[in-house]
Design a binder for these strands. Structure first.
Lengths: 208, 208
DNA sequence: TCTATACGGTACTGACTAGTTCCGGATACC
DNA sequence: GGTATCCGGAACTAGTCAGTACCGTATAGA
């Protein structure tokens, strides 16, 4: 990524860089980012949170923007895997199965990070791309697969606007958390699925 | 508001303060806020944009946070009036009538201001309240009235989740602009009304 | 063992900014 | 006309922070 590249140079002498510190520093960066936002975050805060020296941070990333870019990009590979969303046999079952506690927690953190960098997104295309790839796209992709399966099963019309359907849930969650300041819980998400997403998709329970 | 209060003191001598400058400074503040965000904004930028001296700004507002709070709060009274939304006789007609160019432009600016202060909202309850009162609530109220009329007319079921229905459009717009970086146009909004909002509301055209 | 580099930590530099003060000129009340 | 306050503008103060340099210590290869 943007991380300072040392590979390819001559085999260096002296103590080896402890790459186990990399993810710790990146995680600390995301924590501080979520708490204080882009401008509010200082490298000293990150170093202190990661119990590292400031020089240790600058040995790996050349500047604050590069550290943040890398931290945001690394959110992409998270503990929750969105590439193979649950398959329960029904659209409603799949959507409800997406509402799990770890997914919720991770989503909330990603949203807070997003809130911290939103104002930069309009001015830094590279950061914008990283944020979308890490935060927005995984969920959208998972929803896309779920809706495509529903179309293949004949649960919803083939001409449904899947693109927009995929964004309803993430958009409502983001709006609720960032604009209204209300945390989302399982109950709200399931109510959203039943009252908004499924009706908008033109869904009928497969068996009466 | 938080503006430095000079009323109630003795009738002061000397040149009067030119209160025509107040809205100009507040507008400049909102412009800079939308362009650079909360932390990126400096009082010098605001003064330069308003063609005012920095002292002129500090004579009216005691600090940067108070200036921003006041500027955000003053967005509430905008040129577009949401208190009496259009009444066309049908739910779809009312919703479509809300999609007007001035409304769109104002909404986009408000969203950019919101993007500039989102990261502060979690840490400054007063600013959060002002932002919600100025940006979120007017639109929500207008939608609420429109949906209530639709219920009264029998266009949509009386037990519809109006609260959530009201937030669909604003949430999708915010998501599209802030997260995806795609500007909204009339076409997208009307497609959203027809494909998402009305189906979710359980709406049927009043006459076949 | 020697050397080069890593580590956590501290101190420093240069740039920037919130907020204050003062200037010369304008304006409104006495 | 005198005086107190306004105006735009510029200079100044104090504090913060990105980025650099250096400390003593730790560790890996020669």
């Amino acid at each position: 990524m943007t991380r300072t590249d040392t590979t390819g140079t001559r085999p260096r002498l002296g103590r080896k860089r402890d790459h186990a510190r990399d993810p710790e520093i990146l995680e600390a960066t995301l924590d501080i980012l979520a708490e204080t936002g882009y401008e509010g975050m200082t490298i000293d805060m990150v170093a202190a949170r990661a119990k590292a020296g400031k020089a240790t941070v600058y040995r790996r990333w050349a500047s604050k923007p590069e550290l943040i870019l890398d931290a945001v990009a690394c959110m992409k590979s998270s503990e929750v895997d969105f590439t193979s969303p649950p398959s329960t046999g029904t659209l409603r079952g799949d959507l409800v199965a997406m509402v799990k506690s770890p997914t919720l927690r991770e989503g909330e953190r990603k949203l807070k990070v997003m809130a911290g960098i939103v104002s930069m997104i309009a001015r830094d295309p590279e950061l914008a791309a990283a944020a979308r790839a890490a935060i927005v796209e995984p969920r959208a992709q998972a929803n896309l697969i779920i809706f495509q399966r529903a179309i293949d099963r004949g649960e919803i019309p083939g001409d449904a606007d899947v693109e927009t359907l995929c964004t309803i849930s993430p958009a409502l969650v983001a709006y609720r958390v960032l604009m209204l300041g209300i945390p989302v819980d399982r109950e709200y998400l399931i109510a959203t699925i039943d009252k908004i997403v499924l009706p908008a998709a033109g869904w009928q329970p497969p068996r009466l």
